[in-house]
């Protein structure tokens, strides 16, 4: 792992919303092809971490590094073009647009038509249900179907790193497992996954490594197995008394 260069890195990142200090000296690194997860309670700074990675929030100090280049002042589109994308919390599909249009927007910045066509086919084979509903408005789909479209839309950007914000949030319990299988499947295609998840048990069982964020500070940084075994973590996040 350490012989490779990280795709995306946080170096001593601090962010503020007005006077409120959100992220405090955060260091992260995401390497090609790995699956990592970020755990933390409410208001611990998880969402801000994602937004900072994508350039929707500008850090007050520290560096966001993409492929060795400092990208603090580059817009989101710059990062998307270079293979970073996200499946947002609650999916946030364009509900009034058709399923196909949602997928096409995922590939908004791509110019390789053939590649886009190929990726569309790949998504159809991955989610046959999606193919049946291409012309339907995305808002009319069921929760599970929407989750598929959201993932498909992200995959259409041909990402190297896929950020996932609470992928199992708002899904029926029966769907949660399927959902993680899908994530696993995407991961197996060689896409690095950075997952922010409440369901720490499930997330850590899939991930290679993980971080724990507490009031904006990284308090734990270890392999998934080690984290699963960490008694303190088990107590506070894994729901064990």
């Amino acid at each position: 792992m350490s012989d490779q260069k990280p795709i995306l890195e946080f170096r001593d990142i601090n962010t503020h919303y007005g006077a409120v200090h959100i992220l405090k000296e955060v260091n992260l690194a995401i390497y090609p092809g790995e699956m990592v997860c970020l755990l933390g309670g409410n208001a611990s700074g998880k969402s801000t971490t994602l937004k900072t990675l994508l350039g929707m929030v500008t850090p007050t100090s520290g560096e966001v590094v993409l492929d060795g280049e400092v990208v603090n002042d580059k817009p989101t589109s710059y990062r998307v073009e270079r293979g970073i994308t996200m499946v947002p919390e609650n999916r946030r599909l364009f509900k009034r647009l058709s399923v196909l249009e949602n997928l096409q927007l995922g590939a908004y910045l791509r110019t390789d038509k053939d590649g886009v066509e190929r990726d569309l086919e790949r998504i159809y084979s991955m989610f046959p249900r999606v193919k049946e509903r291409l012309s339907q408005k995305a808002g009319t789909l069921s929760g599970g179907e929407q989750q598929m479209v959201a993932m498909g839309r992200a995959l259409m950007a041909d990402p190297r790193v896929l950020l996932m914000d609470e992928p199992s949030m708002g899904l029926a319990p029966s769907l949660v497992r399927t959902n993680f299988e899908l994530i696993q499947q995407i991961h197996e295609e060689g896409i690095a996954i950075f997952m922010v998840e409440q369901n720490a048990n499930m997330a850590l069982s899939l991930a290679d490594r993980g971080w724990v964020l507490q009031t904006g500070r990284v308090v734990l940084d270890d392999t998934a197995d080690a984290l699963l075994a960490n008694p303190e973590l088990r107590k506070s996040y894994l729901g064990e008394a």
Binding site: M56, S77, V80, R92, L97, G106, L109
Partner: peptide
């Protein structure tokens, strides 16, 4: 058109639209 789709996307959700790389 591509721009038209972008326009509709922006009118629905600016944040996600910019996540798609839309200016």
């Amino acid at each position: 058109t591509r721009t038209g789709k972008a326009m509709r996307a922006v009118s629905e959700d600016k944040e996600i639209a910019s996540l798609m790389g839309i200016n």
